[in-house]
């Protein structure tokens, strides 16, 4: 095993480089955060709690466009990873900024949705459905913003030839953010069961 380069890439007690193991560990904890919210949502919905019929008021089109945006940004960040593995930092930099652009589009659509709902009186305290809606999508949006900031920092770092391995790590995180949305979309926008 090589002992050159960042410790996150060559120290490995498990067969997985410690940097990547750490990001998977983080994501395992995130499963509890978002999973706990989804489980509570499903329990209250199955229990017939009033207010959940408001799921029909969310815009399926907006949710679908945001799903398309996140899936496409997932493609661009994995292409950034593939490019950096070949040592092409300029191409990777470009793909990372496509991904950040996708994040901005996602947040813009989300802000448009929030504005419409709030203007119609559907706020966080309207009923339990809207409490879940704003908590789950808001927490998800915070993860999107966090990912965009870290991606921007990494993009400038790789342009200087440093820490190439971080592209893969932020990529895994970004795909998880995409995964969470893949489940929030049917839950909040499609399946009014």
């Amino acid at each position: 095993m090589s002992t050159h380069g960042p410790i996150a890439t060559h120290r490995s007690a498990t067969g997985v480089p410690s940097g990547r193991l750490a990001i998977w560990w983080l994501l395992a904890s995130e499963i509890f955060i978002f999973g706990g919210l989804v489980v509570c949502f499903v329990l209250f919905k199955l229990n017939g709690t009033p207010g959940f019929e408001d799921a029909s008021l969310t815009s399926t089109a907006a949710g679908a466009i945001n799903t398309f945006v996140l899936l496409t940004s997932s493609l661009s960040i994995v292409l950034a990873h593939a490019a950096i593995e070949k040592g092409d930092s300029a191409k990777s930099f470009t793909y990372i900024w496509y991904t950040i652009g996708g994040g901005f589009v996602f947040l813009g659509i989300k802000a448009y949705e929030y504005t419409g709902k709030i203007l119609h009186g559907h706020t966080l305290t309207d009923n339990l459905f809207w409490s879940f809606y704003y908590t789950m999508t808001g927490l998800h949006a915070l993860h999107v913003i966090g990912g965009m900031v870290i991606m921007a920092l990494i993009s400038f770092d790789i342009r200087k030839g440093h820490n190439y391995q971080r592209v893969e790590l932020i990529g895994i995180y970004w795909h998880f953010v995409d995964l969470v949305w893949i489940f929030l979309f049917p839950l909040l926008y499609i399946a009014n069961f």
Binding site: T14, G15, W24, W25, I31, G35, V78, I172, H175, I182
Partner: peptide, 27 residues
């Protein structure tokens, strides 16, 4: 599809699968 291909989970060591399956079992 996203986890297996984009996150490269299909190439990961068993310990990562174990970590994720354990999380979901606890959920």
């Amino acid at each position: 599809l996203v986890a297996a291909n984009f996150m490269h989970l299909k190439f990961e060591k068993k310990i990562i699968w174990f970590l994720l399956i354990l999380s979901m079992c606890l959920l």
